[in-house]
């Protein structure tokens, strides 16, 4: 009987357990989550990397959450990036937009969303995802046409 009750109590405790943090090191690209999730600019492959770099700057500066797109396709919403409390819109986030980095931090998962609180960017590989070779620039007006 005690085992039966304990099993049910364990099931009730699931959400709390899911929110406990775990130290991880992840390599991935710093992306703009809104464009990646919403498809507002096109498919997910077109809204990452160099093609989407200017838009990633705009979105980060304007407070849209940034994410870390890991090599296995997992997206971690970045809540903090190094010393800056504000991952999004901070100078570090802008400097690292579209960069592939190796980050060390605390991982949390809750209600279907993965989060990372980055304590340290261990390595910055720069922009290595050269998507402009396939997609030009996304959105198409990101680079203003030179005036005659």
């Amino acid at each position: 009987m005690r085992r039966f009750i304990a099993a049910f109590m364990g099931l009730f405790a699931l959400p709390a357990l899911a929110a406990e943090g775990e130290r991880i090191t992840v390599t991935g690209e710093i992306i703009d989550t809104w464009c990646y999730y919403s498809g507002v600019m096109g498919g997910p492959d077109s809204v990452v990397g160099s093609a989407h770099h200017t838009c990633a700057l705009w979105c980060s500066a304007a407070g849209i959450p940034i994410g870390l797109l890991a090599e296995d396709g997992t997206v971690y919403t970045i809540l903090k990036l190094g010393a800056q409390d504000n991952a999004t819109g901070g100078d570090t986030a802008l400097r690292l937009a579209s960069h592939t980095v190796t980050a060390d931090g605390m991982f949390y998962a809750r209600d279907g969303i993965n989060y990372i609180i980055v304590e340290e960017v261990l390595e910055d590989f720069g922009i290595v995802n050269l998507t402009h070779e396939d997609y030009d620039v996304v959105p198409s007006f990101a680079i203003p046409e030179p005036k005659e």
Partner: peptide
Amino acid sequence: PWFRRDPRINALIAADGYLGL
């Protein structure tokens, strides 16, 4: 629009270009 006038964005584009490369 604001995103064409934002000083931090413009400084980064001036340094690294629109593609960041």
